[in-house]
């Protein structure tokens, strides 16, 4: 029901706002729900809010099990690449 896309934080503007990059699209998102996310971390973005910090290690493991392959680069809600 809720579109969310993974994005990488590239700059922290203040305690509640960061700039996230979605493959060349940089958007300022509220980080009130992900207070620990810093530059280089991957978060899920929903309606202008980072709703979760993604666990990169788990993401890679999940995809490795499913794939034995590199994750596809352009898929919604895919893992961090």
């Amino acid at each position: 029901m809720c579109l969310a896309v993974p994005a990488k934080i590239v700059a922290v503007k203040d305690e509640a706002c960061a700039t996230a990059d979605l493959h060349g699209n940089q958007i300022d998102v509220s980080t009130v729900m992900t207070p620990d996310a810093g530059v280089g971390d991957w978060v899920l973005i929903h309606a202008g809010f980072a709703i979760q910090q993604l666990d990169q290690q788990t993401a890679m493991e999940t995809w490795a099990v499913l794939n034995d392959l590199e994750p596809p680069p352009t898929q919604q809600a895919g893992p961090p690449t």
């Binding site: 579109l3 896309v5 979605l22 493959h23 060349g24 699209n25 958007i27 973005i45 680069p73 352009t74």
Partner: peptide
């Protein structure tokens, strides 16, 4: 052909 930056922007906007 769809560039990744376009696909990602489209995904974000639904």
């Amino acid at each position: 052909p769809v560039r990744p930056e376009a696909q990602h922007a489209a995904d974000m906007l639904g």
